[in-house]
Nucleic acid binder design. Structure first.
Lengths: 156, 156
DNA sequence: CATATAAATGTCGTGGTACGATATATTATA
DNA sequence: TATAATATATCGTACCACGACATTTATATG
C-alpha cells in the first residue's frame, strides 16, 4: 500500500461515516450541517456559554455562516435564541424539546455506526500516520524530476 | 464527559482536519473536492480501473457530481479523460504531471498534519465508541419518557 | 439480427451552505 | 463624549450535491 492509498483510504472511511451521518440526518428532516450545530450545542462543556461565535469556532466556519444555520434551525423549531444578561450583544442558544428528541435519536444511530465502522477508521488513521514514502514514489513514478527545496513553497 | 460531548468532540476533530485540508488545497488553487478526487484517483489500487463511477463511489457522491468535478479538474489541466478499449462507454482518468506535482505537495502537508493531529483524532474516536449513556441523560432532561433498566448500566 | 433493456457518462436546473463585504447594536477605551 | 472593538446579522456570489433527464455503447432476447 502506497502513501496515496493510505491517505485515500482514510478519506474514504471519513466520507463513509459522514455520508451515513448525512443520510440519517436528512431522514429526520434535518440538513447535515444543522445536525452538526445541534450536536455541537448539546456537546458543549458546561462552563462554555453557547454563543454564536463559540459554535462557529467549533464548526470551523465563519460566525455569519453559523448565523444562517441558526436561522434555519430556529425557523424549524429545533433551537431558540436567548439574549443573555451580562453582555447584551451575545445570543445564547438552547435546544427545544423537539431538537433534543431528534438529536438523541440521531446520536444513538451514530453510536451504533461508530461501533461497527470505528475500528476501520482507526486502522486507516494509523496507516496514514505510519507510512512515509511519498517523495520517493512520486519522483520515481512520474519521472518528473528530483525533488528540491522549492517544492516546499509551492502552496504559498 | 457525556456521550454528546464525545460525539461532538469527534466531529470537531474531523472538522479541524478537513478545515486544514481545505485551506492547503485552496492555497494551491484547488477546490477541496477537486483535491479529494485527485487523491482518490492516485490512491486507487492497481487492479481497479479509474472510471467515473468508481471515483464517484469512493467519494460517496452520485456519478454526475463526479462528472462535474472532473469537468473542472480537466479544464484546470489536473486530470485527463481517456476512452478505454474494452468498453467504449467507460471514461478512464489519469493525472497530468501538473496534477501529480500538486497532489504530492498536498499529500506531504497532510501527512505532517496527521502526524501532529492524528493522535487527538484517534483518542476522540475511541472515546466516542466507548461511552454509552445517551438514552439515560436525554430521557431525564427532556422528560420524554421513563428511563429503562438498561440505561442504568451505562458505563463511564 | 433487430430491438429492447441495461449500463456508463453527461447536461440542466435547484437548493443548501460557506464566504467576503458590509451593517447594526452593544461594550470598552481614549 | 468620541472612538474603537466586539457580537451578531444581512446580502450577494460561488461551489457542490442532487434529481430528472439525455446520449452513447453494450448486452440480452425473440
Amino acid at each position: 500500500m502506497t502513501d496515496y492509498e493510505s491517505l485515500a483510504e482514510l478519506r474514504y472511511q471519513i466520507r463513509r461515516f459522514q455520508h451515513f451521518s448525512e443520510g440519517v440526518a436528512r431522514a429526520t428532516g434535518l440538513q447535515p450541517q444543522q445536525h452538526q450545530l445541534m450536536l455541537t450545542l448539546k456537546g458543549l462543556p458546561r462552563n462554555i456559554r453557547p454563543r454564536v461565535a463559540e459554535l462557529a469556532e467549533r464548526l470551523q466556519i465563519k460566525h455569519h455562516s453559523a448565523v444562517e444555520l441558526i436561522n434555519r434551525l430556529s425557523a424549524g423549531g429545533y433551537v431558540r435564541r436567548h439574549r443573555g444578561g451580562k453582555d447584551q450583544r451575545e445570543v445564547l442558544l438552547t435546544l427545544t424539546p423537539k431538537g433534543e428528541r431528534i438529536l438523541r435519536t440521531l446520536s444513538l444511530y451514530h453510536r451504533a455506526e461508530l461501533r461497527t465502522q470505528g475500528p476501520a477508521l482507526i486502522a486507516a488513521l494509523k496507516r496514514a500516520m505510519a507510512t512515509t514514502r511519498i517523495s520517493n514514489r512520486i519522483a520515481t513514478k512520474s519521472g518528473d524530476r528530483i525533488r528540491s527545496k522549492s517544492d516546499e513553497h509551492a502552496t504559498r
